[in-house]
Amino acid sequence: MKLFNLFRRGTAPIARERLQILLAHERSARTGPDLLAVLREEILAVIGRHVAFEPDKVQIKLDRGKSVSTLAVDIEIPNGGRIGGIAPQYSRLTLDGGASSMNKQVA
């Protein structure tokens, strides 16, 4: 973006690009359900069925890009939380990736 600015003094092209990306998402959300919002809800519901976690220890990051969007869910699980039969002292569950790619890590 900064390099871009060297060639064009104005900020209007940046405004235009931001609007194009935002409105593409808002228009698709208007006609159907917002895929990333649905994923976020369902992922948390699934995890909540197996692991007890505090809602305020959940960090959800969303980055809507022009062609690819990413959803990152980072959940702190307190002592006593259970994942796959193992009861760790302290766990952190991170789901990272967009609709197409999803990596699961247990740290």
């Binding site: 003094r9 104005g10 900020t11 209007a12 092209p13 609007l19 409105l23």
Partner: peptide, 15 residues
């Protein structure tokens, strides 16, 4: 708009 400081009419119409 001509200096690229403001969205131009073409920008707004295209969006």
């Amino acid at each position: 708009a001509a200096r690229g400081e403001m969205l131009s009419i073409d920008d707004v119409l295209e969006i």
